[in-house]
Design a protein around this nucleic acid. Structure first.
Lengths: 197, 197
DNA sequence: ATTAAGTCGTACACCCATGTACGGTTTAAG
DNA sequence: CTTAAACCGTACATGGGTGTACGACTTAAT
């Protein structure tokens, strides 16, 4: 269950295997605690610290790779729910649920990555995924099911931001992960749908 | 323009003055860059590094104080717009604009503080302020102008989260700070108002 | 079977911010 | 005017993570 093709391209079999183990371990650890050291990651991956550095020249590079992997995973999931088909609002509902199922797996990751990588890099990494959302919303606007009196950028930000807020909410136990998809869907559609008058 | 009464209680005049200078400088610097060192803060405040430590035993303590000061400032502003008076939705609109005017001043602070202090402490610090919001929304629900089919906790989170998302949006230049109050108001009211049927 | 890629552990240098200790000087307070 | 609180700079100790160098061993590929 990996997305390690591009990172392990041209590598030997054991190298590829280790790279996968490292990113998996790093994803897991880093989602829970941003203070993990390279040594921690190496140990959890069952790999020497030096080997770790052989594949990821710096801590920053590793974190970047982890984030990229998670985003790519989300991106694939979003694509798999075929956002181009059917009415925009129904497609959007599918997309939200799909996004949540991925996000729910890595709840803490977003906050931690944001802390260490900075807002800008975060934004850059999410660009392709947010592009999907933007296109879908634009389509909904064209179809007349979504409102047009707010900036498109802002609507995208809203979706992004509430999705992650939901993850934080689940992580701190205020709301149960099972209840959230429905809550998210109604909330976001309430924003996107055109006002009454 | 200060909230330094409780921190400087019983201190001598010059001490109080320095404490004020320190928190002001720290607030300013830290809102833009979380990597500022104690030395940086001290220099910006026109104070010896040692003096800084005399008042704030650790970096963490300083950051905590800075956050607390900012939150208290926001809290006072929220109180000043008399959220108890008038129809709940109108009061809410006032509250949002008021909150934004404060938030706009310290745009980066939230992200940086979150990075260094952690989600839990962040939540704890905001508790009193969020309490105000919660009470107002509850009042709106009782008056029938706000929806009741979503958890109250979630509605509060939504407000909090979109407010800060707006700050980030302004900070990265995607939207102008002047346009945001209106955008925020319509967005949040769209969520809070009961669904059409 | 040969080779090159990969892995291992240990060890080291480094950096830089944090936090403390000291002794001397200023400044507010009574 | 006297005193104690508060200030100053400099200097030092510390720690812990980062990143690199090495030499030897193991494993995949052809």
């Amino acid at each position: 269950m990996g997305s390690h093709q591009q990172a392990a391209a041209g590598k030997r079999a054991d190298a590829a295997r280790n790279i996968a183990a490292i990113t998996d371990a790093a994803l897991d650890l880093f989602s829970r605690d941003r203070t993990v050291s390279m040594a921690d990651v190496a140990r959890a991956a069952g790999v020497g610290r030096v080997t770790l550095y052989a594949h990821f020249p710096s801590r920053e590079a590793l974190l970047d790779a982890v984030l990229a992997a998670a985003i790519e995973q989300a991106d694939r999931a979003l694509d798999a729910c075929s956002p181009e088909e059917g009415p925009a609002d129904e497609a959007f509902a599918r997309l939200v649920r799909s996004a949540w199922s991925i996000l729910d797996k890595h709840r803490g990751l977003h906050v931690n990555a944001l802390a260490e990588l900075g807002t800008d890099r975060m934004r850059a990494g999410h660009a392709p995924t947010l592009g999907r959302v933007e296109r879908l919303i634009a389509r909904g606007q064209a179809e007349g099911v979504f409102r047009t009196d707010l900036p498109l950028t802002w609507l995208v930000t809203t979706v992004y931001s509430l999705l992650h807020a939901a993850a934080a909410e689940a992580d701190s136990g205020l709301l149960t992960p099972e209840a959230l998809p429905a809550v998210l869907e109604t909330t976001l559609l309430a924003i996107l749908r055109p006002p009454l008058t």
